[in-house]
């Protein structure tokens, strides 16, 4: 965080007239209230910047950690068509990571610094990726439920007050909805397939349903960052609102899939015009968040290992670039003096 503060002081200081903080803040508040976009060179409150960096970093980390549970099935994909779809999906996630790290960079925090924080366990990624992909159907369940929940969360971010984040999200959401349809179609094929395939699909939905509901974060009365983020229009709907929206979308889709959702309390509430659903096990959520999920250790270890084992490659690229820039510069200087 120290680096963020130092940098933002340097950046904001350049445009900030002495003693005009109050006026700048008022202009920022007015821009946000008028639904205008805040751009990287605009003045912004320190806490707004820090909050965005935290959120974008967590989002970027989720994309790259999220590659692991799905990449787990690339080598075993049961048809070449499915293999191509899955590889392209995992590749898209790497691409999303790139856009999001770049968007965070516009606020003065580089990818390397954010990755170091992830590897040190000081920044989070979405807890959903701490669950294992045990069968091929999990690839479909992730597409349908996890990507579905992510889209429900992320579509409103396309209107987020910070320009670079909002624009990155437009592109990401388009690709995510493609992934979600592919996941749904994978599950549909299994559900209508052999009895063993159907069972595989049902089992995956049973395991992924509750963790997907947890993706919307703690209930509104327990959410640490919600109120301020809503004022700043980084966030536009509450956790519980989005969760309800997701449940209402999934119920008819599950029916069309011929699969059941593992919640005996799930039923239509005529009065509310929404579905009632059972209590979420927040104790499990907290445990996974604390690092005690089935795969926390595995995911972070693989990420750290890939980074450490790749250090010599990154060093080589830097050394090569330096050598060749130096050669060019020397050659140019040589020419100039000759």
């Amino acid at each position: 965080m120290a680096a963020v503060t130092a940098d933002q002081t340097a950046q904001a200081g350049a445009d900030r007239p002495e003693g005009a903080d109050g006026a700048l803040e008022a202009a920022f508040d007015a821009a946000v209230a008028a639904d205008e976009r805040i751009e990287p060179r605009d003045w912004m409150p320190d806490a707004y910047r820090a909050s965005l960096v935290r959120q974008m970093a967590q989002h970027a980390h989720s994309e790259i950690i999220g590659m692991q549970p799905e990449a787990n099935w690339i080598s075993r994909a049961p048809s070449l068509r499915r293999k191509a779809i899955l590889m392209a999906k995992v590749q898209d996630e790497a691409g999303h990571g790139l856009y999001l790290y770049s968007a965070a960079e516009t606020l003065g925090t580089g990818r390397e610094e954010l990755l170091d924080k992830l590897h040190a366990g000081r920044q989070r990624y979405s807890s959903i990726f701490n669950y294992p992909t045990l069968t091929w159907a999990d690839v479909g369940a992730i597409g349908w439920l996890v990507d579905g929940a992510a889209i429900t969360n992320q579509v409103p971010l396309c209107r987020c007050s910070y320009g670079p984040y909002a624009r990155a999200m437009v592109r990401i959401c388009k690709e995510e909805s493609f992934h979600q349809r592919q996941g749904y179609e994978l599950l549909l094929t299994l559900s209508k397939g052999t009895p063993a395939q159907h069972e595989m699909a049902q089992d995956a939905v049973n395991r992924w349903w509750w963790p997907s509901l947890m993706m919307f974060g703690p209930p509104d009365d327990a959410s640490a960052h919600s109120a301020q983020s809503m004022t700043w229009k980084i966030k536009r709907h509450s956790n519980d609102e989005l969760r309800q929206r997701f449940v209402d979308i999934c119920v008819p889709q599950a029916e069309a899939l011929g699969l059941t959702l593992p919640d005996p309390d799930l039923r239509w509430n005529e009065e509310r015009g929404q579905h009632d659903f059972g209590a979420i096990d927040w104790k499990e959520f907290q445990e996974v968040l604390k690092g005690n999920g089935p795969c926390n250790e595995q995911r972070l270890t693989q990420r750290r290992r890939a980074h450490e084992e790749g250090a010599w490659v990154r060093d080589a690229a830097v050394a090569y670039a330096e050598k060749h820039t130096a050669t060019h510069t020397a050659a140019r200087n040589g020419e100039a003096t000759a």
Binding site: I64, M67, Q68, A71, I74, M87, V90, Q91, A94, G95, G97, L98, Y101, R111, Q302, R305, A306, H307, E309, G310, A311, V313, R314, A317
Partner: peptide, 11 residues
């Protein structure tokens, strides 16, 4: 996938 030395190489 998931093991590349740098994100650009994942892509």
């Amino acid at each position: 996938a998931g093991h590349a030395p740098v994100l650009e190489e994942e892509v």
